[in-house]
Design a protein around this nucleic acid. Sequence first.
DNA 1: CGTTCATATTGGACAGTGTACATTTAAATT
DNA 2: AATTTAAATGTACACTGTCCAATATGAACG
Lengths: 194, 194
Amino acid sequence: MDLLRSEGLEAVSMRRVADRLGVAPNSIYAHVADKAALVDELIDAMLGGVATPTDDGWRARIERVMRDSRRELLAHPDLVPFALVRQSVGPNALRLGEVTLGALREAGLDGPAAVTGLQVLLVHTIGSAAFETGRTGDPDPAARGRRGRERAAEFGGVTAELSEPISRWSGDEVFERGLGWLLDGLVPGSGRAR
Amino acid sequence: MDLLRSEGLEAVSMRRVADRLGVAPNSIYAHVADKAALVDELIDAMLGGVATPTDDGWRARIERVMRDSRRELLAHPDLVPFALVRQSVGPNALRLGEVTLGALREAGLDGPAAVTGLQVLLVHTIGSAAFETGRTGDPDPAARGRRGRERAAEFGGVTAELSEPISRWSGDEVFERGLGWLLDGLVPGSGRAR
DNA sequence: CGTTCATATTGGACAGTGTACATTTAAATT
DNA sequence: AATTTAAATGTACACTGTCCAATATGAACG
């Protein structure tokens, strides 16, 4: 986790981790099956920074879990792409998942509907973090060589019109608005912003 | 693209691609800046399979773009994790983005709101595809070695209760329901399912 | 026509990567 | 003290993306 936070995920190689532990690279395989499994544990460790909410209303509890998870995701951007695909079932993910499920049931959803709701919320929270995380920097879409420059010229004007505002608008807005709409839709008749 | 579809993304290495073209590995760098840039072009090539919708209503047009994109994403699962993070601004992504933006404006949204709406829709569509794509197979959460088995025992029962139904319920439902709620929320007063 | 010049391609190499195999060291259990 | 189990190790394999200097190729031009 130190390595990840200080030098990014690409620095988290078996050899570098082993160095950090004063150990041979192979020793790690006695504790972890794969590198993927190692990353899974990193993800769950990250979720350790999300507190179990104790708010009164179910809606407030859900909002808090999602907002806090989002904060933690944005603080560990390199993990975000994996958080969705390899949904880790570590203790922290489980803890937060059950709290959210409980809140959804409290809101009146039955078993299957609550699970679907949880999934939709996860997709939105992690997905919007992934979206926000990506493309932070190089505004240079031109590849090297002939094809690259040709492409840049081909649709140069339009690129500016569409992709520029996309990267400019705040991710908070995307996250908050989407979260609101999903919660409104999840529990029919409980619309807040309407 | 052939290589990706037949052997997955891990087979798409510079050397294998070069082999396929009867060319030395380095030659590719005259046409593409990076391997990342190559993947970006793969993503846009994939989006080439999504037709420009011609339906009458704005809502039908948006639903079609998102549903078709989802189909294409699920057909190329290895690309999904990258579709969100490295949102490619290739010609096809641009084409579909503008069509969707047009539909949102037709629905009555002004510039910034339409862009936010587009982002929320993208996050949901790509995000739910990513979620569905992940974890298709090995139901084996136990790592090797002592820690692994210890962990599996530590929260064994709960794992089954929560993670088993999650991987069982259909992704279609998550996608369709979320899409509906988002569209309902996006355009106030036009709720369809209520 | 030959020459110039940008583009494309090449061989070779560097510094890594994840991980398998067989073996030795260490710790826990009997 | 002996035996079983776990942890750590050295070596090695088959790859990976990408840089560098040098060469081949094609089109444009005087």
